[in-house]
């Protein structure tokens, strides 16, 4: 049997601190979840003449930045957006890109209600399976599985460009979740939603990891985002707390900056959260070589 040799570093006096975990992300996530849920509901209420005042009566498509992404081709070639997509989706797409250039996929980690929904479902899984949770898929195959979302992205963009219709709606579990009562939701989308919920009990954010085409687009920004999650090896005590907590199973402790296309900028790994040593994992502009 192979023995692992652990080389202990001379421990620098770690400035570990007991700290209250910041609640800002959860607050922002809950806010957007409720907002989107109310907006989808408002559309129904509006049709019944009971719309909630001051709340947008937009359709879900109008507030989904991915709608903007799938429209790009048509917009460039014909100058119009695809069916069901409105200017608002295009504007949100630009805002999301701006955020991604600065901080990576914050939309995934902070805003997307479907990501939040998976995280919440995952809490049940974590309760049931404890430390095993989110570690079921063998790393060797998992690495490749994580690229499936790019294949889905290419397919969605291709079909949308050729038909100029929002075909993604028919397989979109996010749409299914917020419109499950409507007859616009296809059976396929409902099945995908069911599968996602089930998988969330074992794997954190399964849809984000393996299937989300929008996550795939934003993930690319991790390669060149301005503010990166950076680790300072000199103060790191190699406890791997950052790796443990990462919902996307990224090995933060093995490099000096997170460049993985899977990072969702949740900041769970930072010294503000999991890392016990102050100023060791941070969101910053400078320092840190490539991972």
């Amino acid at each position: 049997m192979q023995q692992q040799i652990l080389i202990k570093k001379p421990s620098p006096v770690p400035r570990t601190i007991k700290k209250p975990k910041p609640w800002y992300r959860s607050a922002v996530q809950s806010f957007f979840f409720v907002l989107v849920a109310l907006i989808s509901l408002n559309k129904v209420l509006e049709e019944a003449g009971m719309a909630i005042p001051f709340l947008s009566q937009a359709s879900l498509h109008a507030i989904c930045p991915f709608g903007g992404v799938v429209s790009i081709y048509k917009f460039v070639t014909v100058g119009t957006l695809i069916q069901k997509i409105h200017e608002s989706a295009f504007i949100l797409m630009l805002i999301a890109f701006l955020l991604a250039i600065a901080f990576g996929p914050v939309i995934c980690g902070w805003v997307c209600p479907f990501g939040t929904f998976q995280e919440w479902t995952g809490k049940i899984g974590r309760k049931i399976f404890g430390k095993k949770y989110n570690h079921y898929v063998p790393v060797k195959i998992d690495v490749y599985f994580r690229y499936i979302r790019y294949i889905i992205l290419a397919w969605v963009v291709y079909v949308t460009a050729t038909t100029a219709k929002l075909m993604f709606q028919d397989i979109d579990p996010y749409f299914a979740l917020f419109q499950f009562w409507s007859d616009e939701v296809s059976m396929t989308a409902l099945i995908i939603l069911g599968v996602t919920i089930t998988l969330s009990l074992f794997v954190e954010r399964p849809y984000c990891k393996y299937a989300c085409p929008y996550g795939a687009v934003l993930g690319i920004f991790n390669l060149f985002r301005i503010f990166k999650v950076r680790r300072t090896p000199s103060s790191c005590i190699d406890c791997k707390a950052c790796d443990q907590v990462c919902p996307m199973n990224i090995s933060v402790s093995s490099g000096t900056a997170v460049l993985s296309h899977q990072c969702i900028s949740c900041m769970k790994c930072t010294s503000e959260n999991a890392c016990p040593v102050a100023e060791t994992v941070e969101l910053s502009i400078k320092g840190g070589a490539k991972q």
Binding site: Y24, Q57, S88, A102, W110, S265
Partner: peptide
């Protein structure tokens, strides 16, 4: 820090919506 990210995210999203509404570019229908 995460507080900064929270604030910047909210400001950019809602600021962007407000700005484009003023410019009459924000159309949801």
């Amino acid at each position: 820090k995460s507080l900064h990210v929270a604030v910047i995210t909210l400001v950019l999203i809602f600021g962007g919506i407000a700005l484009t509404t003023v410019l009459d570019l924000w159309k949801t229908t």
